[in-house]
Design a protein around this nucleic acid. Structure first.
Lengths: 145, 145
DNA sequence: ACCTCCTGGTTGCAACATGCTACCAACTCC
DNA sequence: GGAGTTGGTAGCATGTTGCAACCAGGAGGT
């Protein structure tokens, strides 16, 4: 019994999320799904991942209700469910963090643009219930309840 | 050469972020750091992770500039750098997604509260540059540049 | 000084996950 | 009906994770 530690019994929502999408490929598959990939081959070409790994990850994402398979002609396609669509802020947060800290100045990178005006999105902000902008130091975690 | 695929040459910021914090433990370590953990033993007790894994992850996070070690008496402590603090929206996004989709109705979970009024935070929103609320469908990715 | 405990790790080994290549079945297109 | 494309599965080598054991330095008691 030396398998990977699971977090699905944890009471912390972060741990549960990480349990589902916390591996290297799953979030990139979801990113590609947002970007229009629907078929096995789309993901495979875009990611360059081995087919058995992709197969296992897609199955896991379907099992977890993030993707669903829909018939498309003779084959089927993988599309995001509402649960999967709800990961959009996670992807945006990772993207903005990467843009800010994982590139050299002037190094080119892909950009997520608003379709309407072709401008980058506004940086994510964390707000309190009353609308105040908060930082990590303004918050605290209360266990369980 | 069958090692884990690295994404540090990718032009997609999401891939670069995932390369650094995309494993199961790193994000939970960062979460604990936001929650006040500073010493090796703090993380170890909180996460229940094996000490060698924790040791390797802390080293990796320090190498990547997310944590830094500061002397504290005879020992040293691990504290978030500015780069690490900037992961706050990522943690909040994962937490809110987990709250919404990874718990049964009524199942208790820990909560992230505003210190001021002890209320949960407002759900994250993705806005365009002009302030419009956008969904994934309103955006598109432009490669490189 | 000496013995012991606590903290903060490192080392060794077994089991699981990843990645590469080969293979395969179904369908499409000549 | 043969060849190519799509969407996988199977086998095997290597990497990574996890548990337990060990170990060094400092603190505290006697």
């Amino acid at each position: 019994m030396v398998k990977r530690t699971r977090f699905d019994g944890e009471s912390c929502p972060v741990a549960r999320s990480v349990d589902v999408v916390g591996d290297w490929w799953s979030l990139l598959i979801v990113r590609d799904a947002f970007d229009g990939s629907r078929r096995f081959g789309d993901f495979q070409r875009s990611l360059g991942v081995a087919k058995n790994i992709l197969s296992a990850r897609l199955r896991s994402l379907v099992d977890n209700g993030i993707l669903e398979t829909v018939p498309a002609g003779a084959r089927h396609e993988y599309v995001l469910t509402a649960k999967g669509e709800a990961l959009f802020p996670v992807i945006v947060a990772l993207r903005q963090w990467g843009e800010a800290f994982a590139f050299e100045a002037g190094e080119p990178h892909s950009q997520l643009l608003d379709r309407r005006d072709q401008q980058p999105l506004r940086p994510l902000e964390v707000h309190a219930a009353d609308g105040r902008l908060v930082t990590a130091a303004d918050t605290e975690v209360r266990k369980d309840r």
